[in-house]
Design a protein around this nucleic acid. Sequence first.
DNA 1: TCGCTCCAGATTGGATACAATCCGTCCATG
DNA 2: CATGGACGGATTGTATCCAATCTGGAGCGA
Lengths: 228, 228
Amino acid sequence: MSVRLTAQDAVLARLRDDILTGVLGPGDQLVQEALAERYGVSRVPLREALKTLESEGQLVYYPHRGYFVVELSVDDLREVYQLRALLEDAALRAAVPALDDQDVQHISTLSEEIDQAAADGDVIAMTDANRRFHFAMYDAAGMPRLSRLLRQLWEATDAYRAIYYQGEANRHRVTDEHSAMVLALRARDIDRLVALHDEHRTHSVAVVEAQLNPRDHIPHRTYPRENP
Amino acid sequence: MSVRLTAQDAVLARLRDDILTGVLGPGDQLVQEALAERYGVSRVPLREALKTLESEGQLVYYPHRGYFVVELSVDDLREVYQLRALLEDAALRAAVPALDDQDVQHISTLSEEIDQAAADGDVIAMTDANRRFHFAMYDAAGMPRLSRLLRQLWEATDAYRAIYYQGEANRHRVTDEHSAMVLALRARDIDRLVALHDEHRTHSVAVVEAQLNPRDHIPHRTYPRENP
DNA sequence: TCGCTCCAGATTGGATACAATCCGTCCATG
DNA sequence: CATGGACGGATTGTATCCAATCTGGAGCGA
């Protein structure tokens, strides 16, 4: 019975958290020896976790120089959200007809979980609940590959999402927008749901974009050069 | 100057070839010791390459049991092509206005490369040229994330594409369809290009789908069980 | 025959050790 | 003062070794 996680999976989870919370910020080099010690493992499983994050697009890798947390340009960010719009719309339109009342109820419960985490001020829990809320809808489309692509796109901006839930105003708007979406779901109003969802996404990209420019982040070691 | 490839990159390339050519077929377990010896490296860089292929969706991984070449169901295959349709249409529509005459000429040249490889009967070269032809168009959209997602979707079915180019009839149709697409490109007729491209994709999925069912493949060791 | 437990071999997971490469610095040279 | 080249520490890349886990079959009993 494999209740015991492998070291690489444990490390992967911790890396995701550290990127999400900003412990590892955009541009930072991930020095393997230091990280391995920090997580209490050797470099071998760490490197496999890094490789996973690289192919998800959260890290960039330069042979013989190492892994760095990606630095998104404004263009990158807009592209990610443009692709999300395309794919999330498709997912929702496929999902809604497949949802029964119990599914909708479950999604509603997840929405309340977010509010609870928000009240507790637990940013990690909130991000996590938020993701479960949205993916409960996307996954209902019954298209696992689509869900997978959407997870990647979401994770690609994790490094910049940390600050989003700090603001009180943002948290309230999120709550309201989610409630409206649940109502549209109950009514099985696909067009309205998609419209609300698009608006919701647009709000969040605006906030993240504002965070993007005025950064004077000091990298851990060196900025990666262009491909030599 | 890093002309020298790292072992993991070399192994990754060889793994892709072996999957593409069917040396490693759907359902096969990738026994690390054997593969490492085959490629002349140790298991460490091999495992990193395997991890990359796993997160691209070409392999599945069960902790303590190993990596297996994915076995696509008909539903999986249809989903991949449905997603490709969505994303490729978007890519083409963004790309065409950005193409100048020189770009179109380049794409036309790539089309001839495919024909040349087909004449030589070199399946690997043909697949490679075909991919460069299509991605010359997709990449022109100037959306690197989109290109990346499309690469993943293409690679996801590599294990089943090997047989496609064996048939003489398929090869001729591919040539004709590509020529028609180049003509539409020269005329900057976006709608026509997208339509031709959709048709082209539909043909190929039909052929692959036919390959999918009547399989009596003998796996290398054991079929992976469902998630325990 | 069927189902169960336990053991041995096979295979994967991870730690350590060492080799290859990179990068900043110092110094010589023009 | 600028430039280039060589050295050394830091970091990454890979091989080897051992531990942990799984698989399949032998043996046994119902």
